[in-house]
């Protein structure tokens, strides 16, 4: 742990080197190169089917790259199953939230803390989650599946935070939410980064908002990086504005 902290400033926390990922014959990622430095919010934007979700799945071990390397904390983790990777202070909030609908809110959080065996620490993290999302506290004993989409997204994020991750992968947290919830979720994401130093790789179709809170960004198109750089520069890029930010 302490060794990581010393080198943290220099080495990237996450690095993808020439990553190729397939769904059967479908070549979804075509030689992706991407870095995320400690403490950053990096936005990954792009249209539907560009490969954003596949990128996150390849990082968290849900998918195995056919070629290339995923380097996390200096180690090549490509091909390691996700349950092993998730024991290394990384969390992935998957697309569509994927909370456990038949488990209560509290149980969802406790499952999120599965890799922690210290009961006191689990309880502490549950309370931290409730402090972050007071609404979850009100719903503590309710089944996850009975909550609104926005509440489920809060639960999915809180569940991912149970292990106090160094790297948080967020897949379209604003999808299908009312503007009020979107605002709240982005607020929390920014706060996590600012107050806890959590490094975040944020996938969004809502590019405007993502670029507003990110330091750097990558634009993905049909499995390849089209553009990368400072979020502010990307946000003002003519072609990006046309393609992803709704400008005519």
């Amino acid at each position: 742990m302490s060794a990581d902290n010393i080198t943290a400033g220099a080495a990237p926390l996450l690095e993808l080197r020439d990553v190729h990922t397939y769904y059967g014959q479908i070549h979804a990622l075509k030689g992706l190169n991407l870095t995320v430095n400690p403490g950053e919010i990096v936005a990954l934007i792009g249209g539907n089917g560009a490969g954003k979700t596949t990128t996150l799945k390849t990082v968290s071990g849900m998918m195995k790259p056919k070629q290339g390397q995923v380097i996390y904390q200096g180690q090549n983790i490509s091909g390691i199953p996700s349950h092993t990777i998730m024991q290394r202070s990384m969390s992935h909030v998957p697309e569509g939230r994927r909370i456990f609908p038949q488990l209560t809110v509290r149980e969802n959080l406790e499952v999120g803390a599965f890799t922690i065996t210290n009961r006191k620490l689990i309880e502490q993290r549950v309370q931290e989650g409730f402090a972050l999302f007071p609404r979850l506290k009100e719903r503590e004993t309710q089944l996850g599946g009975t909550m609104s989409g926005g509440e489920q997204q809060m639960l999915a994020i809180a569940r991912a935070l149970m292990v106090s991750p160094k790297l948080l992968l967020l897949d379209e947290p604003s999808m299908g939410l009312s503007p009020l919830f979107v605002e709240a979720i982005f607020d929390i994401v920014e706060r996590l980064n600012r107050e806890h130093g959590t490094t975040i790789l944020l996938v969004e179709q809502n590019a405007n908002m993502a670029l507003a809170i990110a330091q750097r960004a990558y634009v993905l198109q049909t499995g390849e990086i089209r553009l990368s750089g400072n979020a502010a520069d990307i946000a003002s890029d003519e072609s990006v504005r046309k393609a992803y930010l709704g400008d005519e």
Binding site: S60, H83, M86, S91, R98, V163
Partner: peptide
């Protein structure tokens, strides 16, 4: 309920 997501929980 969901083997893949359980994997993301370290299970």
């Amino acid at each position: 309920h969901d083997r893949q997501t359980a994997g993301l929980m370290g299970i």
